[in-house]
Amino acid sequence: MDLAGIADYLVAFAIMGGIYGVFTLGLNVHWGFTGLFNIGIAGFFALGAYTSALLTTSPPDPALFEDFKFGGNWASIGFLDWGLDVWFVLGLASAALCCGVIALVIGYITLRLRDDYLAISTLGIAETVRFFFLNEKWLANGSKGLYRIPKFLGDWIAPENYGYLYVVVVFAVLAIIYLALQRAVNSPWGRVLRAIREDEVTAQASGKDVFRFKLQAFILGAMIMGIGGALYAHHVRFLSPLTFDPMLATFIIWAMLMVGGSANNKGAVLGALVVWGIWVATQSLPGILSDPSFRLFMVGVLIVAVILLRPGGILGEERRVTRLADSDAARPNNPGG
């Protein structure tokens, strides 16, 4: 592999690592800071990706793609044609919005109930979203997948250099989300979330509307996941319902958060990059290490091992120095560890 080849490889790695970083941050809002158990990340992943893709992909030339079924064609709406690629921002925003609405509905129904109802429901969302895009062929071409998803600012740069541009875009989005989240979790709002995670009864007793806070956190995390999905769509530029299998769209993100440490945003991003690095690096190894089944097994073992041995994650929860006596944040435990 020549130098340029290595650079391309690294850029492709960084893009996916950054996108996974976005998801891990979203999951951190759910699990790390609030203790919400979401096992259907794939659902929000797919929903975000498809929303942005459908909004922005131009209709195909019927002569070239006669079996291409597509319900979009919204990109032709006039105001999107501003020359500057405003559509990308709109795509990301609608992906977030769409995931937020679904999270609102499901969260509204289940967050008043036992904690694990949310887990079961998120699993249901993930499966339903997949079935939806698989069956509703008129909308997104079913199992054949949606392709020709546009590049952001693709006109500005030669196709072979597009990766260099997109990696900047991805990390810019990641940085914005990271900084916003850091502000949010260190605000009084974030402190209430951690108080709920540590001891819901006490939080309730001290007059906090626990349901409201949980719902807000669930929606926020889901919106971040939606943005992650949209970033993914404009990176690979091809979507099929089969892309969103639980392994690469849910389980690996859990492993990333577990490695990085719940309730630690820096750790979450780092965990995403580290786990993705191991994943990619071992892919080309001979033997069992690159066997997808073995990796699946190891991800499961990793999750159990972290819960048993290092409940705070490999990096642990970030220590916070606040002016208020905030014993919850200073404790190095994860939800209940």
Partner: peptide, 13 residues
């Protein structure tokens, strides 16, 4: 919920 989480790990493994 942490126990459930562990059971997710068991399921994947």
């Amino acid at each position: 919920v942490v126990v459930s989480m562990a059971s997710l790990g068991v399921a994947i493994a």
